[in-house]
Write a protein that binds this DNA or RNA. Structure first.
Lengths: 199, 199
DNA sequence: TGTACATCAGTGAACGCGCGTTCACTGATGTAC
DNA sequence: TGTACATCAGTGAACGCGCGTTCACTGATGTAC
């Protein structure tokens, strides 16, 4: 079996996606990991440390996902615009393939429960989102050089739109109980980018 | 002074926007309303009834806001496309004028804490979002009739995009501590619609 | 005009439960000499 | 090869606090006759 720490993180991730961080008790995590409540505190000094570890792990995974996806897209087509359009399609497919809710929810939960967490965790969240803004902004700059946009456009806001549309889509998906919203929203963003840059 | 029930709802709304529903205690609401904890339960049978009343009130307000905004826009320009573009600009301005966080947060909180609430509240949330989808879808249908869209487009997903972009923008705004994100995101959506329909 | 009763809008003490956290202790494994 | 000690990965009982909720009671206002 995997080491207990990883097991705890896996269990917590699933529980948080299902019902949020505060509603997930240490008792329940410990039971699922088949250790006692006391045993849990051997691995994490308190509940905040658990949240931090979870978010750190999620951000690392998400960064790797974006790296892979857009590198793969770039291999398929060397043009910056077409690579991004392919990448967004791959992203939409990936979002659809995540049956138990995309871990993006974890960022959103943290944003909505930030009173529970300490400053370090809020900074983590913040840096992750700024990182994604910069990542996509860089792509858009490269594209804009080759394909002058049809209208003047705020590239930071456009870079944010990836995160914004995924997170917003997740909220609708949860509220509606209707899967596939984030993927559909990403495809809308893709159409927007196509209209904005392609001739 | 306003009646106590309304005072309680106002206090709760502000507190929920600041830190979420679960983190807002009845003790604290009662203290701010200058009544005892027991007195609170004279007005609301339990905490769930408070949540329901808050969300009902929010949805009604939001519906009225959309009614007003797009009616005003339609008065300024009778063309369906241009009316919508004006309406979105007005919406962006309204979002920027809400200093203490837009109550949209309340829908998002409810989506992220839905384990806390009963089925009735989840249905309320669901119906509200479906209502907004239908509202914007109707506008897009009217527009598409006059201005054939440049690409095939899923009008339901496009209708959802208003909610999705506002909610997603709110998450970024909170996580970044950077005001103005929802408005900027709405302006991006506006550009998309312009490129999609206008010649 | 006075009396009896009902309703409204609370008070404030008490209860019980769940939850995060602490702490003394334990058995298994690893390391030094 | 055996002994002593340290570290790892826990156990399980106990503590205390906050929170939602209940309940008997109360003073002010309204209504019937």
């Amino acid at each position: 079996m995997a080491d207990t720490r990883t097991t705890i993180l896996d269990i917590t991730e699933a529980a948080v996606l299902e019902k949020g961080f505060e509603a997930t008790s240490i008792e329940e995590i410990a039971a699922a990991a088949e250790i006692s409540r006391g045993g849990f505190f051997y691995h994490f000094k308190d509940k905040n440390a658990l949240a931090r570890a979870l978010i750190e792990r999620y951000i690392a995974t998400e960064d790797r996902l974006y790296d892979d996806l857009f590198a793969r897209a770039r291999e398929l087509n060397d043009d910056p615009l077409h690579a991004l359009l392919i990448g967004l399609k791959l992203l939409a497919e990936t979002l659809d393939d995540m049956p138990n809710g995309h871990p993006g929810c974890i960022i959103a939960s943290a944003a909505y429960q930030d009173r529970l967490f300490d400053r370090g965790i809020r900074d983590l969240n913040r840096q992750a989102i700024l990182g994604w803004r910069a990542r996509f902004r860089a792509m858009f700059e490269q594209i804009a050089e080759k394909y002058p946009p049809k209208t003047k456009v705020d590239l930071d806001a456009l870079g944010d739109m990836v995160s914004s549309v995924v997170e917003g889509g997740l909220i609708l998906e949860r509220a509606l109980g209707e899967p596939g919203v984030p993927a559909a929203q990403i495809m809308q963003l893709r159409t927007y980018i196509k209209l904005l840059f392609a001739d």
